[in-house]
């Protein structure tokens, strides 16, 4: 019953956004290539470990830009135009809406991640070693990322949520150990990142894409799982609340 209804909710969400989803997946491809190729210009000698950091950081940036920046902006807009009220009045379980939307947006990130890894490999051969753990790791990262994105954009009022999404975009690009080792950051920033999900996402992504070079600690998986639970709890609470 609810399975067949999920199909209609996916149709509703996918067709509402339509060409925007296509445009966005193209933009994400550009961003991912930008991180891998563009950032290499920042380095004096784009070789060895530094290049591998960029090449394995790009997919994480794609996930963060989608789930923690773009989706929250969309959700804040949907709240302001009354679309969320409409969604809440639909004769379906509201969890289906969350499942459908996360599914659609996760699909949007796949081409960008695949293309950027492929192109970076062709140009730099940074030393990818893709492990089978990429699949469960990708699922965990997608879930945690979207859980947080939906969670904060539903729980926080629209305008501050929009502002926060911009802040996240800036901080994750410049001050997060995604494209460089965490040791380069001041101690207190390192401590903050130990608790926040961004560093752990990057660690898990790196370990999956280059398992011969990097290794993620079990704590990274645990912290991501914890953020997933907290985020989805907040999002579902918002949806189920009258």
């Amino acid at each position: 019953m609810s399975g067949s209804k999920l199909k209609y909710v996916i149709e509703l969400q996918a067709r509402k956004q339509g060409s925007y989803l296509v445009v966005f997946s193209i933009i994400m491809i550009v961003i991912a290539l930008g991180v891998a190729i563009g950032f290499s210009y920042l380095m004096s000698s784009p070789e060895g470990g530094g290049m591998l950091y960029l090449a394995t950081g790009a997919p994480t940036i794609v996930l963060i830009m989608t789930a923690l920046v773009t989706v929250p902006m969309q959700n804040a807009g949907a709240k302001m135009t009354g679309y969320m009220d409409f969604v809440k009045s639909l004769p379906v379980s509201r969890k289906l809406f969350l499942i459908a939307d996360v599914g659609i947006w996760a699909m949007v990130t796949v081409p960008a991640i695949a293309v950027s890894v492929f192109v970076a490999h062709l140009i730099f051969e940074p030393g990818y070693a893709i492990s089978w753990t990429i699949i469960p790791a990708f699922v965990l990262m997608v879930l945690s990322c979207f859980a947080i994105g939906y969670g904060y954009s539903f729980v926080i009022p629209a305008e501050p949520a929009m502002a926060l999404s911009q802040l996240i975009a800036f901080i994750s690009l410049m001050f997060s150990p995604i494209n460089f080792p965490i040791e380069r950051l001041p101690g207190w920033v390192q401590a903050v990142h130990e608790v926040l999900p961004i560093y752990h996402m990057a660690e898990v992504m790196r370990a999956s894409l280059a398992h011969t070079t990097f290794e993620a600690q079990p704590i990274s998986y645990i912290i991501l799982a914890a953020w997933t639970v907290v985020g989805f709890f907040g999002a579902v609470r918002f949806l189920e609340r009258a």
Partner: peptide
């Protein structure tokens, strides 16, 4: 609803169809 439902790129026919199916 009191507010105009933002349909995005949905057409009247497709959104009415989804509502009926739901």
């Amino acid at each position: 609803p009191q507010s105009k439902t933002p349909l995005g790129e949905l057409t009247p026919r497709s959104v009415t169809r989804v509502m009926g199916q739901l």
